[in-house]
């Protein structure tokens, strides 16, 4: 597993989201998943990448609470810590 740092998580989350469709320049901390056209299926795919990399699971109700890219990064960092 990779070490969980704010920077490492942010990089991985942005990479994962960019694979799912949105333009990389649009993927900022404040961007909402809705504005990026990232739906619940995409979030599961993102969380699988995060799980594989950091061993942190983002599932079900936890995922439903996440509205922005920043929310996801903060959740993963907090969960790992």
């Amino acid at each position: 597993m990779a070490e969980v740092t704010q920077e490492a998580v942010e990089e991985k989350v942005v990479d994962a989201l960019a694979e799912l469709g949105p333009d990389r320049s649009e993927i900022t901390r404040d961007a909402t998943f809705e504005s990026l056209d990232i739906d619940s299926l995409d979030l599961v795919e993102m969380s699988q990448v995060v799980d594989e990399e950091f061993g942190v699971q983002v599932k079900g109700e936890d995922a439903q609470q996440l509205n922005t890219v920043g929310d996801a990064i903060d959740f993963i960092v907090a969960r790992a810590g």
Binding site: L41, V44, E45, E52, Q57
Partner: peptide, 13 residues
């Protein structure tokens, strides 16, 4: 190769 947790949520659609 990776186990059940990595099966894509897109697999069915």
């Amino acid at each position: 190769d990776k186990g059940p947790d990595q099966v894509s949520p897109l697999a069915v659609p």
